[in-house]
Write a protein that binds this DNA or RNA. Structure first.
Length: 514
DNA sequence: GATAGGACTAGTGACACTTC
DNA sequence: GAAGTGTCACTAGTCCTATC
């Protein structure tokens, strides 16, 4: 990639090509680079490339014309090939022959990152392609597999399948009337459509990106607004229309009803609250699926699951839950996981009920999005943060609600598998479980995300007396010690913060020396 | 001791909504 | 209209370990 980037700077500008038009026709600068790289004495020696280097010019996409003659398009150099010569004098080429096929297979790596994200040129790792086809075989039978094998054989034996069967179609903007007639006939025939399998790995992209966060770039403008499909589907699927893979799903559901649908995607469409309306629209029967780590895909660093799921669109079921096998990066099956779609209200809706902005706060707790992905953003402090989620007021009346929220969200380690799992409104049992409440308080007091410090304001959260920790100075507040000891009674010591005191019994969270 | 690379963690703000 | 919510095919920095 380093050499390719240097080639982009020095050689590409000297090739007489209108790159904008070339890109529209599916030819990228990477094709010219491959032609250069896989050549000997300025002559491409690898066959079946989109572009070939022929000494002092490139030949593109050779075809047989209507007279049976070779019809080729060429591109030359604007500097008499000077920059090209100087560049390749520095590097030895071609690489070892054993690498040739791999290099050509990974042409996708030469597609710019932003184009990949929007147009779906992400390479699906071979192990997941093969595993997904195994699942399709199990669900749809051996006939499906035979068809795939036949296609593979024909391609391997040089059949000209690409010319006849590959066509360009802008799924997010083009009308289905632009599809080849033969395919339209199948899609429009209810009986044939039932046998149709839509098998895709669509692009995953939303407008937002962490590049904005880190000031290394900007949001992906236009992802939400620039696609015709967004306008059409926003009313049907709500916020989900911001996500490109959801547009692909909705489009298939809308235009190719009753078919079989198999896709790689994020699991948000099952779990995410933004997909509530989407699930009212997308009614289908789940057949089989698996999840894999996202970072096994190229250029993906995030720790979240990508799912391969197979759906029967002719059965109109609400997506309540789906049970998937879980595979690690080495394709080892490591268990099963159920993803729930029909979820009750979130834990954030619940904790909000106890948020009293009028009473004096003894701390603030951020309530980021209620899933494991955002747990690292959850913290308690004496100051309101600048993050734009709600900062919940801890006070003397709601201290256990806050501690339960904090402890429940932090007690299970976030992993790539539970990344988008949601925290929900708790059931009632906890209210009578004093041990559980005490455990949550102790957990909250000593957790690393408890960033309460005397530096910021009066610290009401010190669970020890001055003598217990040999402090030379008197603490500004002994609220927590008294709270734990149960000395803060409604008719007792009510001087702290001047509020109603609820505790009547000692909390057994520590064994104290008597 | 220097360097490379991996594991791990903190945290930031625009956008497109929805709710108050 | 203001405030709140959900989102990020996240990034950048630190620390630790392996290797030379």
């Amino acid at each position: 990639m380093v050499i390719y980037n240097k080639w982009l700077e020095t050689v590409k500008p000297t090739i007489a090509v209108n790159w904008e038009i070339a890109n529209k026709n599916g030819i990228i600068d990477g094709d010219f680079y491959l032609a250069d790289l896989l050549s000997y004495e300025n002559k491409t020696i690898k066959e079946k490339l989109f572009v070939l280097l022929k000494k002092n010019r490139y030949e593109l996409d050779r075809r047989i014309d209507k007279f049976g003659m070779f019809n080729t398009r060429t591109a030359s150099f604007i500097d008499n090939q000077k920059a090209h010569q100087e560049f390749w004098n520095k590097y030895e080429r071609p690489p070892k022959e054993s690498y040739w096929d791999y290099i050509v297979e990974r042409r996708d790596l030469l597609v710019p990152q932003d184009i990949r994200e929007r147009k779906g040129s992400f390479f699906t790792p071979q192990i997941w392609v093969e595993l997904s086809q195994k699942y399709l075989t199990e669900v749809l039978g051996e006939d499906y597999k035979q068809d795939v094998d036949v296609m593979k054989d024909r391609i391997k034996n040089g059949a000209n399948l690409l010319e006849k069967h590959v066509f360009q179609f802008d799924f997010l903007n083009d009308d289905f009337s632009k599809l080849p007639q033969a395919l339209q006939k199948i899609i429009n025939d209810p009986q044939k459509r039932k046998k149709l399998i839509i098998y895709i790995n669509p692009p995953y992209a939303e407008a937002t990106t962490a590049r904005t966060v880190t000031r290394t770039g900007r949001n992906k403008s236009g992802v939400t607004k620039n696609y015709k499909l967004n306008e059409y589907f926003n009313a049907k699927i709500g916020n989900a229309s911001n996500e490109i893979f959801a547009l692909f799903m909705a489009h298939v559901y809308d235009k190719i009803p009753n078919s079989k649908f198999a896709l790689f995607s994020k699991l948000k469409f099952i779990q995410g609250s933004n997909f509530k309306k989407f699930k009212e629209y997308f009614l289908a029967k789940f057949m089989k699926g698996f999840v894999i780590p996202a970072n096994t895909f190229d250029n993906v660093k995030g720790h979240f699951p990508i799912g391969f799921t197979i759906w029967n669109l002719s059965v109109k079921n609400n997506i309540k839950n789906i049970n998937c096998n879980v595979f690690d990066k080495n394709e080892n099956k490591i268990g099963k996981k159920r993803f729930y779609g029909n979820l009750p209200k979130s834990i954030n809706k619940w904790i909000k009920k106890f948020d009293d902005k009028i009473l004096d706060a003894i701390a603030y707790m951020g309530n980021p999005s209620p899933d494991f992905q955002h747990n690292s953003q959850l913290y308690i402090s004496m100051r309101k943060g600048i993050e734009h989620f709600n900062f919940w007021n801890f006070n003397t009346d709601n201290i256990f609600n806050g501690c339960v929220y904090f402890a429940v969200r932090n007690c299970i380690k976030a992993t790539w598998i539970n990344d988008r799992d949601q925290f929900l409104t708790p059931k009632k049992k906890w209210e009578k479980d004093i041990n559980f409440q005490n455990d949550c308080l102790a957990f909250t007091l000593f957790h690393g995300q408890n960033r309460i410090s005397s530096e910021n304001a009066k610290n009401h959260w010190i669970p020890f007396t001055e003598s217990e920790v040999n402090s030379q100075e008197k603490f500004e507040s002994n609220f927590m010690v008294k709270f734990i000891q149960g000395k803060l009674k409604a008719n007792g010591n009510g001087d702290l913060l001047g509020k109603k005191i609820l505790r009547t019994e000692s909390l057994c969270i520590f064994s104290r020396k008597k």
